[in-house]
Design a protein around this nucleic acid. Structure first.
Lengths: 121, 121
DNA sequence: TCGTCATATCGCGAAATTGCGATATACCGA
DNA sequence: TCGGTATATCGCAATTTCGCGATATGACGA
């Protein structure tokens, strides 16, 4: 008697369909977090006021890239790419004000991620 | 006035020291999870009885590699390496019985990971 | 309109990862 | 002891990632 697997299809509200609760999407988020520096940046952003002062209040709009770069001790291009990775994973949001791009944690998403791991992983 | 950062040292019981709650260790776990198939395997293992029957009860000792391999539709060597990756990240444990290696979720660790993300990430 | 600053993007060589087949190891039953 | 099965490991070519310098873009102030 040959064993077979029934693939479980999930229909989402947005119309997309996947075999299981998006193992692929989940893996993409984990990939963004697979770098120690990116993890540290996310941790640092829990306390935006630990960064140097800036024109716009960090608590509200986030921390500007320059400060993140300095603290992470990586090149400007690397810092920019790190934040882009975190953003496309949905873990941070960005706010452009004038010539500055500010990054802030997406607390909603991060909380949902923890929940996701607890229930679906 | 130049801004400086105070690095927070963490002394662990085992004597090791790190700058912050192990961003590096955390990143290693995320790396293991950065592959959709590995994520799916972990999800499948939530229900060991969904796998074909085997001599040893899957609920107790885990699922043997062969079954995981078949379901994941990867080569034997890839399946073995996938499970090794999950194991060295602490997400599964293995039990060798005779010629079979059985893999079982490390529920403790997974729960702690979710908790870790909620509180420290 | 310049020069400067902040950021994003491009292009690249180096390094790591990927997934596989081949092979090694180990257990088992005949 | 031998053949078959289950698993782990090796070695490799292909691909991807990594982090950087160089460069492009765009905002600002003089």
């Amino acid at each position: 008697m040959k064993h077979t697997y029934r693939k479980i299809a999930i229909w989402r509200y947005d119309g997309s369909v996947s075999e299981l609760p998006d193992a692929t999407d989940l893996a993409l988020v984990f990939k963004a977090l697979s770098n120690p520096t990116r993890v540290r940046i996310l941790q640092w952003l829990k306390d935006p006021d630990s960064f140097p002062p800036q024109l716009e209040p960090a608590e509200e709009v986030g921390v500007c890239l320059k400060h993140i770069q300095a603290r992470a001790e990586v090149s400007q291009s690397t810092a920019s790419q790190y934040m882009a990775a975190l953003q496309s994973a949905g873990l941070v949001t960005s706010h452009r004000i004038g010539q500055w791009t500010h990054y802030r944690r997406n607390e909603d998403r991060i909380a949902r991620l923890a929940d996701h791991i607890r229930t679906e992983l």
